[in-house]
């Protein structure tokens, strides 16, 4: 039984006040996405993290509203304990205030809020670069392999087989060792350039099934060029799969970058990232736990919110679950 999206052939239905409304694919996706509460929450949280990290200490020379730098050292105030307080005075706390160093200070008196924000910025940039590069390359390779089949496919797929035999962390670590100290842009790009094969596999599968569909055959029958079929006819049909996979790969890339930085194979000091911060202060867990907690909380917030967004997108693009059988 199909309940929706069956537009009346004539206007009989509408004239009788019946509620069969034709919705476009995009409208339906948007509607389903906004009904996914976890995804919505994820989007809000990620938006807040993004806003906070980029507006506070500024970005690309534009200065932000937070007056302390993530590099300048200072005198330790109260052993560098965080001054952030969220318990109001009438509950026996010290009131809701940020204070001088809301996240505390590290061992040489650097403001830890500024440092965490800088780390979050760098982690997000690396993660997005990795996801964008991996998705683009993966999509291209997967599309070409899935469409042309034959020799092109076997060469490309053998190559992805080779790359898949190498655990992602291993290949990324090898790349990170080389490009870790040459800035986040190079690091992100190069990690993206080695972890695309799983994306290529996914896309190839999609293309393999779509290329057999009637509309592709129709396009081929009227002599449409291969590149036009790939980009104009098939690719738009895989857009859901690509968006979902790309979103989830951002979350994975955040974790991958932090793991690399933790191993000392990612972003190098004096520049910083969330993983690098945890690595730097992992022995401080007992003595100065805030140095360990703040970056951890931010990694989890970023990864969790993006994972939820990805899940919401998947549900929105895959309408199977709302179908009612009759």
């Amino acid at each position: 039984m199909t309940l929706s999206a069956q537009a009346p052939e004539s206007n009989t239905g509408a004239a009788q006040g019946m509620t069969i409304v034709a919705r476009t694919q995009a409208q339906m996706v948007r509607r389903r996405f906004f009904r996914h509460r976890a995804a919505l929450a994820g989007m809000i949280i990620f938006g807040l993290v993004l806003l906070l990290s980029f507006s506070s200490i500024g970005f690309l020379g534009v200065s932000g509203w937070w007056d302390k730098s993530y590099l300048a050292t200072g005198a330790l105030v109260n052993q560098g304990k965080p001054t952030l307080s969220v318990v109001p005075e009438f509950l026996g706390g010290s009131g809701i205030r940020l204070g001088e160093h809301p996240f505390g200070q590290d061992d040489i008196g650097v403001d830890y809020f500024a440092k965490t924000m800088r780390g979050a910025q760098q982690s997000i940039i690396v993660a997005f670069l990795v996801a964008v590069v991996a998705t683009s390359v993966g999509t291209l390779v997967g599309a070409v392999a899935g469409y042309y089949r034959g020799k092109t496919e076997s060469v490309l797929m053998r190559f992805t087989d080779v790359m898949i035999t190498i655990p992602v962390l291993v290949i990324a670590a090898v790349v990170g060792r080389r490009f870790g100290d040459s800035g986040v842009l190079l690091l992100g790009t190069f990690i993206g350039l080695v972890i695309w094969p799983s994306m290529a596999r996914l896309l190839r599968g999609e293309f393999l099934s779509l290329r057999e569909k009637e509309f592709v055959e129709a396009a081929r029958a009227v002599g449409t060029s291969a590149s036009r079929i790939i980009f104009r006819h098939i690719l738009p049909n895989t857009v859901g799969v690509i968006i979902v996979a790309a979103t989830l790969s951002v979350a994975n890339a955040v974790l991958l970058e932090s793991a690399l930085s933790f191993l000392g194979l990612g972003v190098q000091a004096p520049d910083t990232s969330l993983g690098q911060l945890i690595n730097e202060y992992r022995t401080a867990m007992v003595t100065r736990p805030w140095l360990f907690w703040w970056p951890g909380i931010f990694i989890i917030a970023i990864a969790l919110s993006i994972n939820f967004i990805g899940d919401g997108l998947r549900d929105a693009f895959d309408p199977r679950q709302t179908r009612v059988r009759a």
Partner: peptide, 20 residues
């Protein structure tokens, strides 16, 4: 027969076949 069957969520009043 012209038209389509009615939505089972929002049935028209009266005979469901009347619109067609």
């Amino acid at each position: 027969i012209k038209g389509t069957p009615p939505s089972l969520i929002n049935l028209p009043t009266g005979c469901p076949f009347s619109p067609r």
